[in-house]
Nucleic acid binder design. Structure first.
Lengths: 155, 155
DNA sequence: TAAAATTTGGTCAAGATTAGTCAAGAAATT
DNA sequence: AATTTCTTGACTAATCTTGACCAAATTTTA
């Protein structure tokens, strides 16, 4: 609510800019300077909050004129994006990453809250309750991909 | 009658704040400090008094900027139906029986078509893909029961 | 043009900050 | 007296912050 971490604030800032155009290019050091953090914190924010699971593609370039480009994408509409998402899932996915994907679909209004919650409880560690974490993650991947494919065909 | 425990007092305090907005975010250490108890007592209060059976959803985040979020939800009045279904499922259920339950809920208009389909793909033999049939049936039961529990409340 | 210098972003690990778990003992209730 | 509930704290886990070191691209210089 009130005491947000600086990472949360940087996330909001970037998303606010992204609200105006669907793609932005930033200079890492500028953002870091603006929020008075070390440059690698920007990498941390991007790595934890702007993944494909969240519905973002990120590209970057080093050297003079370097940049970090963040692009907002649609997970289900675009076949390429959906494929890269399924590729990112692979045959195994953590509870956290699965949660992020469902959350993104909900944010994009592709799921109702009830549908999203039904998916989340089916993917939760508590429900799956498998001793072996690898087995659990593989099972979660199968369930999630099955559900995504169902959504894909029905939309 | 008797003295209130400190857990009761913390419960009242949280519910009072929840009376103003249907969702609150607290910092565990702040509440613990305010009532002069160890932090884990807050977990105890939440675990015993803010369960889904009581009509609350709880989420949390650790690390800097961490929080515990408590949300009040509206319990629906079809709880009895769901309870008896959960009873009937027990700790194991076949694909066929699970299908029938979902179908029944759909016919009773407790599920939309999409919700029902999402449940079915998550419960199918093909998705679960577990060698041992008993293990599979127990896993299916856990998933179905978790989903039915989600249907107990709205929004 | 090739090497060197400069300018950018990337990785990783240690430390800090927050919440979660569990079990033992105390207190209350039956 | 037995059982249940509450309280406490040691240990665990997740997340965030920082900085040293690495890699790539461009620009400058020999």
């Amino acid at each position: 609510m009130e005491e947000k971490s600086i990472s949360d604030i940087i996330e909001e800032y970037l998303k606010q800019i992204l609200g105006e155009s669907s793609q932005i290019e930033i200079r890492r050091s500028e953002i870091a300077n603006h929020f008075d953090v070390v440059p690698s914190q920007i990498n941390y924010v991007i790595k934890t909050r702007f993944t494909i699971q969240h519905g973002y593609l990120v590209q970057s370039k080093r050297g003079g004129g370097g940049y970090i480009r963040i692009e907002r994408v649609n997970l289900l509409d675009n076949v390429d994006v959906l494929n890269s998402l399924i590729q990112a899932i692979g045959d195994s996915i953590s509870e956290r990453d699965a949660y992020d994907i469902v959350r993104t679909l909900y944010d994009e209004k592709l799921l109702t809250r009830r549908e999203g919650d039904l998916m989340l409880v089916a993917l939760s560690k508590q429900t799956l309750n498998v001793n072996d974490c690898n087995v659990e993650a593989r099972l979660r991947a199968r369930i999630l991909i099955s559900m995504l494919n169902r959504l894909r065909y029905e939309s």
